[in-house]
Nucleic acid binder design. Sequence first.
DNA 1: GTAGTCAGTTTATTTTCTGGACGGACCATG
DNA 2: CATGGTCCGTCCAGAAAATAAACTGACTAC
Lengths: 156, 156
Amino acid sequence: MKWDALSEEPCSVARTVAVIGDRWTLMILRDCFLGVRRFEDFQARLGISRTITAERLKGLVDEGVLKKVGYQDRPTRFEYRLTEKGHDLYPVIMAVVNFGDRHYAGQEGQDGAGPPLLHRHKACGCDFHPVMTCSECHAPLGARDVETRAGPGARA
Amino acid sequence: MKWDALSEEPCSVARTVAVIGDRWTLMILRDCFLGVRRFEDFQARLGISRTITAERLKGLVDEGVLKKVGYQDRPTRFEYRLTEKGHDLYPVIMAVVNFGDRHYAGQEGQDGAGPPLLHRHKACGCDFHPVMTCSECHAPLGARDVETRAGPGARA
DNA sequence: GTAGTCAGTTTATTTTCTGGACGGACCATG
DNA sequence: CATGGTCCGTCCAGAAAATAAACTGACTAC
């Protein structure tokens, strides 16, 4: 199966993975949410080839996840910013962070223990971790609490 | 930067991406949460080479996300099941699904419109979409509601 | 006019992915 | 007991993607 075939699947996972399902794309998005905006900064922080950096950024712009915004003329320079669609990926990144914190952050008392980053909710002032809840009854959700069935966009 | 280097980074995204940051791994996990368990079924549903299927499943088992469970002898056959750690990836997959539903499911009234799958919360009986909330005050969260700073596991 | 910043592109090499054939352990049918 | 079918992989050679390092180009600063 090719990259393009993925985005044609009647599956929201496949369609999204076709856009962000790539090591470096996910790392770029992490940096976007940390405030990185310029080509040189992405390239330096990620330690990957300029080729890949350029290609992935272009892909994200084409998909409408990032947009190029000029920040100076002579010479014309752009920075990459998250669009509204890009902001919608925040739950994805935070879910990934939360998994990493839980399983790869090391035990307390050890060297390098604890999460590398803390997240503070401005409104309540607390350090938090994200909790996935039901949009209807607001209860926390796990895989075993859910039944899945075909929806209107399913293919026969 | 190589695959291995990613898992050494003091970053929960990088460490998690080192495990699941791959097109096919994410598709395999999707199928796991839909109840797929056998090699032949993964292979047929994904339409990818047997080589990759075998390699990715092995990787997930090595990481403790899946476990092999015998379901018959003569000949010995195994199926792949999610571990507890694997179940912790549910919020990641659901976040991806939710993004796909929002941006790639098509508009109502169009052909192929609406989400391909519906998710029903058993406890309340409603079809839902996942909402990310603060573990402390239970309010819904967006990227702009959060401040990030270095945690105990950060590197100097 | 020499050096530095910033955003890429080009090139050649290495690594990874791919499809398709093959292997092995069984079972079911005639 | 021979033929075909199921199931889980492995092996191989060609195709595709990732890599590092050098290069372009448009400026600014000294």
